[in-house]
Design a binder for these strands. Structure first.
Length: 506
DNA sequence: ATTCTTTGACCATGC
DNA sequence: TGCATGGTCAAAGAA
């Protein structure tokens, strides 16, 4: 748990300043565990990793920035805040994600995950990759952040996929997992590995495990101690606020406090973010954590654009029959991603609520019923089951026609709704129910076309599982393998990850 | 001939 | 009660 504001002054004593990041003595206690890491610690270590990297193709952001972006009142403010980050020019951007849904509640967050904007692979194209040690707890937050960022990027239909993440077995180590994954990714990036491997998934699998995560708290404390001593030796002891230089990439986009204040004032004026603190669940978030805000955060009253606009797009085969071929051509393929279009929140909320329990209460792991997984492939959206279309209509609020399908198995109650764009691309798939029979077709190694993401079906009957497609075709077996490996590795960690791939990796 | 899609009509539900 | 909306049915047509 994070220390409460108002504790004794010793707890608030600064022990290290690393650029914009200030570590307090209470943070050292947090690292001693078992406690949920706060954003200062996460910001500190990401800043440290940033300082170890060279060039500006890799960008690690403190938690305050993605949280701010997710909660700004309008796209203009988001664009203004993000402008100095130069996201389109980055190859890899690491964005810590907190699940605090209430910006007015400073300690509302309960779970940390890591979202990456990945533009390292020209074949797969840009994508978001989400690492969650307790999936799908933070998926809604990650979706929200991705939806906010997409309009800022050259390609606005970038898919969001789940990356491999070992599952935490306690209620407080999510932040440590974030840092461990970030370390593995940075290591992959700063070595020749990124030239040999299509992505960092194998690196995460190699370097992030129960032992490495367990050791990380000690390593962080050792790192802090080393930095304090090193700085004391070179700066003639600036304690108690030992000042280390700001990492270049962060410093280059830093702004003065008055600029922070302008945006702060604007946010204060907005109903939704009134009294917002920069980051979820922190006792002492300060304006200084807004160090990367733009010089001109010109706020407007333009309406907030939701992620509904950005949907999807899946290349659709021309075949009129729904039952797909077993072998997809490369032109038919596409990834299917979990995405939120703004409705059917119930399902996500239930999952998120379940997950929140875990990181809020130490040692309390959510007692969730493991549910079968529905895999949504293409083409159109092949999932191993056969479907019969029994209706289609235009629904209000959707730009696309909605088709209704039933599983063709005689006793199977599963239905699904598929919305397709005018040019036949999948905009959304919603499953309802659970198959009571095995798949009619044996699993087969996919070709270039392959699912990238799967979701668990619900046993709850009334709940629905929503998928949305995307236009991100997977262009190489290597990438597909990586995705599959990524999902499969979840099981490799023995975590029983609920967002995992149904397919086997050869 | 069979299977599946299309599409207008009908029904249930909520406001 | 009437209307709007989403979901389902079933006849007709296409593959």
């Amino acid at each position: 748990m994070r220390p409460r504001r108002g504790g004794d002054k010793e707890e608030e004593e600064r022990v290290l300043s690393h650029g914009d990041v200030v570590l307090l003595r209470c943070d050292l206690k947090i690292l001693g565990g078992p406690h949920l890491l706060n954003d200062r610690i996460i910001a500190f270590y990401l800043a440290h990793l940033q300082s170890q990297s060279h060039g500006d193709l890799l960008l690690l952001l403190p938690p305050s920035i993605p949280y701010l972006l997710s909660n700004l009142p309008d796209p203009a403010s988001v664009a203004a805040v993000a402008e100095p980050l130069r996201l389109p020019s980055r190859r890899l951007v690491l964005l810590p994600v907190n699940d605090n849904p209430d910006v007015s509640h400073a300690e509302g967050g309960t779970h940390w995950t890591l979202l990456l904007l990945d533009n390292t692979n020209p074949i797969s194209g840009p994508r978001f990759v989400h690492h969650d040690s307790l999936p799908p707890t933070n998926l809604p937050s990650a979706r929200r952040l991705a939806a906010v960022l997409r309009p800022l990027l050259p390609k606005r239909t970038i898919p969001l996929v789940e990356g491999p993440t070992p599952r935490q077995t306690n209620g407080y180590d999510c932040g440590v997992f974030v840092l461990a994954v970030a370390r593995a990714i940075c290591h992959w990036w700063t070595t020749a590995s990124h030239q040999l491997e299509p992505d960092w998934f194998e690196a995460v699998k190699r370097e992030v495990n129960a032992d490495s995560v367990k050791a990380m708290r000690t390593q962080l404390l050792h790192l802090i101690d080393t930095l304090i001593q090193a700085n004391n030796n070179t700066t003639n002891n600036q304690h108690p606020s030992t000042q280390l230089p700001c990492p270049p990439s962060i410093a280059s986009t830093s702004l003065c406090l008055s600029q922070h204040t302008r945006l702060w004032c604007h946010m204060q004026s907005h109903k939704k973010v009134a009294a917002v603190k920069p980051v979820a669940s922190r006792p002492s978030s300060r304006l200084r954590t807004f160090s990367m805000l733009p010089k001109d955060s010109t706020a407007t009253d333009s309406p907030w654009v939701t992620s509904e606009e950005e949907a999807i797009i899946l290349r659709r085969p021309k075949a009129s029959r729904f039952t797909p071929p077993m072998n997809n051509s490369s032109t038919d393929v596409a990834a299917t991603r979990l995405e939120d279009s703004g409705t059917h929140r119930t399902y996500d909320k239930k999952k998120a609520d379940a997950g929140q329990v875990a990181c809020r209460d130490n040692l309390t792991v959510p007692q969730r019923v493991r549910k079968p997984i529905i895999s949504v492939k293409n083409s159109l959206s092949y999932d191993g089951y056969n479907w019969r279309k029994y209706g289609q209509k235009q629904v209000k609020g959707s730009k696309f026609p909605r088709s209704y399908y039933k599983c063709t198995h005689p006793t199977c109650p599963v239905k699904r709704k598929v919305e397709t764009t005018l040019d036949g691309q999948i905009a959304e798939i919603v499953y309802n129910g659970e198959h009571n029979h095995p798949k009619p077709h044996p699993a087969k190694k996919p070709s270039l076309s392959s699912i990238v993401e799967t979701v668990d079906a619900t046993n709850d009957g009334g709940l629905e599982t929503r998928l949305e497609g995307c236009d991100q075709a997977i262009g190489s077996d290597a990438i597909v393998e990586a995705f599959e490996g990524g999902f499969n590795c979840l099981d490799g960690f023995g975590n029983g990850n609920e967002i995992s791939n149904c397919k086997k990796k050869d």
